[in-house]
Structure formats: structure tokens, C-alpha cells
Design a binder for these strands. Structure first.
Lengths: 229, 229
DNA sequence: ATCATTTCAGTGGCGTGCATCGAGGTGGGT
DNA sequence: ACCCACCTCGATGCACGCCACTGAAATGAT
């Protein structure tokens, strides 16, 4: 099947008519990104509405001192470029880089905008997606402002587990994190060493056993407890 | 005129047909809040889509230690409850309290939802609004994670000036801030003392003269400079 | 108006969480 | 076996949160 076929299957577009989906697909162009390639830099004008076909992207900002804050990742079936739809003149708020080799489908902004005005279902779907992101950003602010670094790490790990092992019970759990400690640090707004010390402390307290990316979670309950403070 | 007449005039609903506006208005109920009255607490089920008729509301969260983070304010013509439109089962993400005596118009969720599905213009308008909020939340994360407290204060003051004195040139500018230092602190994720010291430091550096809520801005350029680091 | 009470602002001191630096240790990949 | 990226951990300094106190300003009652 053609690469852009996948557009028809993404959750965001579920419920749209075949006709609309075909129009969307016909307007899409595939773009390949190498690992580590920058797709967009913060401050640039927006380019397109995008669907990730495969691979993984990272969204982030960097301050003058070089510290990086990660705002999120996008994988297959995810979309991005939502804010460009309604605010075409605003510069890109974040930078975007390919974490692995990645293919994306670019849909030009005018055509999806026009479609959105004719298909309320599409507009509502996009609004729903945007609402979710808003909530997760609220949570991030909440954490950065109201919790200390150890809490944030525990909280991060807890939500990572719920997302990636939703079926796990309360028993021991072997994990292999797909991020380095530096990457985790950039997500929770701190530095590598603090993440390392955080794992050490949780190990001391008997919550888990950690060695590098390999983590054995001993007590989910106590992890959650630590995350909530 | 009837209180809810104002619904027809708010920016969000600009461009909607008279028919639609009347329907919206007919579904609205006015609610009075005393100063300091809590309208919604974080965690409660969503109540309605709301328009602020007059007064001012504050949106915030508090952690267990009692520290408060303000996410924003809403004044006349502003709306809130956007996330409830698309995620009806999600609990309210933030608490809401009346900073002054306030009147709001509540529009029940089902009717505006139904309207949104029939009127793409409304859906797009709401999406646009949501996009703006998402961006401002991004900025807040950016600041909390990437800037120190003094930067955040300078940055906060700078954006406050641009919003409230857009016509001001580069010359001296007398300001009266409508917030106490504690309130400013809660917005930028720090404590009162740091705000006080921040103003002192900016005064030492010749950026402004401060005494209480009264601030004389001397160099807008240097303020912006300080905000960007 | 005057005074009392409360809220707010300015400032020093102090403890601590965390960022920075530096020196190893470890493991995976070629 | 080697290298290179990643992780561990101690030492140190600084920013910032917390406490305590003082004075100023606002608010309210008489």
C-alpha cells in the first residue's frame, strides 16, 4: 500500500467519511527524516499539518545556557502542527527533531483548514486532541512548580508505567526504559545526575532496583505514593 | 438589557449568525459569585461552559504543602470550560475562585456541544481559543524550567506592560500593578520575598523604580533584555 | 477626622535542594 | 580488546524557599 494510506487509519480521523479521507490523503506528501535531523526550529514559520507514519520525533526548547526542556514525543499515528491550523502567522512554538529515522506525511495547511470548516467532525476531533495536550501541559506546569525533582521523577516513572504496561498488576515488574537518564532529565526539567540520584534513593527505599535503563519495579503502590507528595 | 445579552458580543462568538447566538443566549443562566467564593475545585466534575460577564476569576492549583500556582485569570468577555466540551468525563483540571464579585453566564454543555457539531465556525473559534491557551501554557513551562526567578519576574512584567500599555513607547512609564507581590509570585512559581528582591535588584540596575504596587519603568529595552536571558 | 487592626512590602539570616564539576565505573558495539 | 556513551557518586557553590522582624499602607469602626 502507498505510504499515505496510513492517514486514513489514524485515531484522530476516525469517523470521517471515505470521501474526506481520500481528499486528505491526496493532499499529503511524504517526507523522510534521518536520525537526528531537525525538522523545524522554534521561531520558524509553520510549515504543515503532519502525521507521523513511523519513527519518533521529539519536541523541545533550549535556553541560552543550553538547557533543554522536552515538551513531548510523537510516534506512529500521532499528529502535530495543530496550533498552526488556527494561528497561521504565529511562529513555531517548539523545535522538532527526529529521534530515529522517521517518515511523516505533510498536509498543507490551507486544504485541511478548508476541510475543517466544512466538516465539523474534523474540527471537533482536532479540538479534542488539543484539549488533551492542554491538560498534559497543565500537569507539567503543576509538577515543575509544585513538586521537587525526586517527586517529578517518581511521577514520571509512574505515568510511563501506566502508559506502557497498563495491564501490569501490583507485582514485581521488569522494565527497560527507552530513554537515557539525560533524556528523562530533559523531560522533567532537571539534569542527569539528579535522575541518577533519584533512582538510587528509590532503590534505598526499596521501591525499585535500577541499573542503567533496566529497572525492576518492586512496589507500584509506594512509587505512586512518592509521586503524589 | 438582559445580562445574557453580552454573550452575543464576546469575541469568541463573533461571526456567528443571529439565530445561533439567540439559541446560545436562551440556554444561558446567570450565576453570581461573591468575592473570594470558590466556583469550582480541581477534581470536581465539569459543570458548564462559561462566559464571564463582569468581575474577575482566578484559576489555580495548590500542592499539599499549600503552595499555589496560578494558571491564569479571566475577565469580562473571557470564556472558560473549554476542555469540558470535548472531554466531558474528565474532572476539572484546575480550581476557580472569584477574585472580585463576579457574574458569569453558564451554558449547559450538551447544547453548546450540539451547536458546535452543526456550526463549524463555532468549533473553529473554540479551537483557536484553545490553541492560544496551549501556547501560553507552553511559555509557562518554558519559563519555569529554563529561566531563573529574576528572569521570570522581568519577563512577567514585560508581558504585563505589553498587554496593558500597548501604546507605550520607550520612554518612562508609570504603572500601578493590580496584583500584590504574593499574587505575582504565585503566577511565576516563586514566593513573595523573591519578587520583592527582584524589584529591588531591577531598581539597583536602573531598570525601574518600585515602591509597592507603584512602578516607574525607566528602560523598557533593558527590561526586555533581562527577561530574555 | 482618628485610631485600631489587618494586610502588604522590605530585608537580613539561614538551611537546603539542586546545578555544576570532576573522577571514576560500567556496558554495549565494532 | 578497545572505545564511547552512559551511569555513579562525592565535593562545592549558589539560588531560592522559609522564618522572623520591622515599617508602611490599606481597611474599617467609632
Amino acid at each position: 500500500m502507498h505510504a499515505t494510506e496510513m492517514i486514513k487509519e489514524i485515531p484522530l480521523f476516525k469517523g470521517l467519511s471515505e470521501d474526506v479521507l481520500s481528499r486528505l490523503e491526496s493532499r499529503a506528501r511524504v517526507r523522510r527524516l534521518e536520525e537526528g535531523e531537525t525538522y523545524l526550529s522554534a521561531g520558524q514559520p509553520p510549515r504543515a499539518f503532519c502525521v507521523v507514519l513511523n519513527g519518533q520525533l521529539k519536541f523541545y526548547r533550549v535556553n541560552k545556557a543550553g538547557k533543554e526542556q522536552v515538551f513531548g514525543y510523537a510516534g506512529p499515528h500521532d499528529v502535530f502542527g495543530l496550533t498552526s491550523l488556527t494561528n497561521p502567522y504565529r511562529a513555531m512554538p517548539v523545535s522538532c527533531i527526529a529521534r530515529t529515522a522517521t517518515e511523516i506525511a505533510e498536509i498543507d495547511l490551507p486544504s485541511i483548514r478548508e476541510l475543517m470548516h466544512r466538516e465539523p467532525a474534523l474540527a471537533v476531533a482536532i479540538l479534542t486532541e488539543q484539549g488533551k495536550r492542554y491538560s498534559s501541559m497543565l500537569d507539567l506546569v503543576d509538577q515543575l512548580s509544585l513538586k521537587d525533582a525526586h517527586n517529578r521523577l517518581a511521577s514520571w516513572l509512574d505515568t510511563w508505567v501506566t502508559e506502557n504496561h497498563p495491564d501490569a498488576g501490583d507485582n514485581e515488574l521488569m522494565l527497560v526504559l527507552p530513554y537515557t537518564q539525560s533524556e528523562i532529565a530533559a523531560q522533567i526539567g532537571t539534569v542527569r545526575e539528579v535522575v541518577s540520584r533519584g533512582f538510587s534513593r528509590m532503590e534505598k527505599e526499596g521501591i525499585l532496583k535500577a541499573s542503567g535503563k533496566r529497572v525492576t519495579l518492586l512496589s507500584r503502590k509506594r512509587l505512586r505514593q512518592m509521586a503524589e507528595a
